[in-house]
Design a protein around this nucleic acid. Structure first.
Lengths: 161, 161
DNA sequence: CATATTACAGATATTTAATATCTGTAGTTG
DNA sequence: CAACTACAGATATTAAATATCTGTAATATG
């Protein structure tokens, strides 16, 4: 069970957008170059964020993406669900109804307790993702990169917005 | 992000094995028929349980599978990890190192805080799965199926062990 | 107004993983 | 010995992830 790389890309892009000066847009082209990922494919992930209402876009030169809400109002879960979907990681296919001992016209089966356990775990995963907001990230990310690179990156971005 | 159907099958099979009378084996063929899934493919999931040491097997007629430990000593996580692996649902590909502003010989990057959040959520998922044991299931499953089917199923199994 | 640039939807191709089956081998029971 | 089992490994099929391409409409700038 692996999350798509879109999730990783979208999270890193969102972290960058969260640090962007107020009102400016950053284009998909620059986000792709900054992270070293294919531009056209990253665009799909960004469009998913757009459809979920997490980012705003504008066209033309100086166009691109910016957050639609304040960083503290966007959680990891928002982003993960935008690109990966809201469906549970466990799908119950009701194999109980394949039991050869079960009469066809038996009354509807009660909820599957195995599925319930799996769904509870899925909920725990989502609850955990909901606990962290983009605003929590800003300090962390700036602290984990070396100062020289951080300085250059800020300049690099400022030249493209 | 979807778990493989092997997970669902393995959990239902384990629930059946947990209810088996002491010392008896149930063959993959019967587990497949009971759940209405392809025998050869289910066998792969059962073999994964065997390799993880969760079930014991024996060959020949009357051969098959039984739990290697008491139901209270086997958790959902044991079974999920046996068939799905222990790798985290989030893989960090370190796209930070693709930053064009970063000098090649920069000292090793500190742990990625985005990955840390994702791994924490993965841990929350696993912690939740570890909370439920096969022994917890026995009562639940017997309560969710109608009495007539349950009775017939117990007989059906008893004729095959 | 003209040009360059953008997001975006949709189609298409490629690669990888999931699903499924088949074959042969070795051990077990009666 | 005959029938049955688990199991490893090879192979085939199907679906999903990954990646690219094309055309369209909107926007800023000169």
């Amino acid at each position: 069970m692996q999350l798509r790389n879109h999730v990783e890309w979208a999270l890193h892009c969102a972290a960058v957008l969260a640090a962007l000066p107020e009102g400016h847009y950053l284009a998909a082209r620059h986000l792709a170059e900054l992270h070293g990922v294919p531009r056209e494919y990253l665009a799909k992930a960004l469009q998913a964020l757009s459809q979920a209402g997490l980012v705003e876009t504008t066209l033309g030169p100086t166009g691109g993406y910016r957050l639609a809400r304040a960083p503290h109002a966007i959680t990891f879960l928002d982003i993960v669900e935008a690109v990966e979907g809201k469906a549970s990681s466990f799908e119950c296919t009701e194999i109980r109804k394949n039991n050869p001992c079960r009469a066809k016209n038996t009354r509807p089966i009660k909820p599957c307790s195995i599925a319930a356990v799996m769904w509870k775990a899925d909920k725990a995963w989502r609850d955990s993702l909901r606990e962290t907001r983009l605003s929590d990230l800003i300090g962390m990310v700036q602290n984990e990169v070396d100062p020289e690179t951080l300085k250059k990156t800020i300049i690099w971005i400022s030249e493209r917005i």
